[in-house]
């Protein structure tokens, strides 16, 4: 089973890469873009058969490794 996770910078945490992407998009004439936040996307292949168990396990992984909860939020899709 494949579990998908998105990790993004928390609101209020400076995201200089997102800012640079936004400025570049603006300079490419995408003038409607007012903010970009850059995150990470993970696809985790697990041997567990039960989706609930697998998601619970992935949640543990997020807390312990995949996200730094001081600066990032995670979302299991």
């Amino acid at each position: 089973m494949k579990i998908k996770v998105i990790v993004t910078p928390k609101n209020g945490v400076l995201d200089p890469q997102g800012k640079a992407i936004q400025q570049t998009l603006n300079s490419m004439n995408f003038i409607d873009v007012s903010e970009v936040r850059q995150g990470k996307y993970f696809e985790i292949e697990t041997d567990l058969k039960d989706e609930k168990d697998a998601k619970k396990n992935v949640e543990d992984m997020c807390k312990k490794l995949l996200a730094n909860l001081v600066i990032e939020d995670y979302k299991i899709l």
Binding site: L14, P16, Q17, A20, V70, I71
Partner: peptide, 10 residues
Amino acid sequence: NGALLRNKYL
């Protein structure tokens, strides 16, 4: 405590 982010001016 804390975190170390990418430098402000990249």
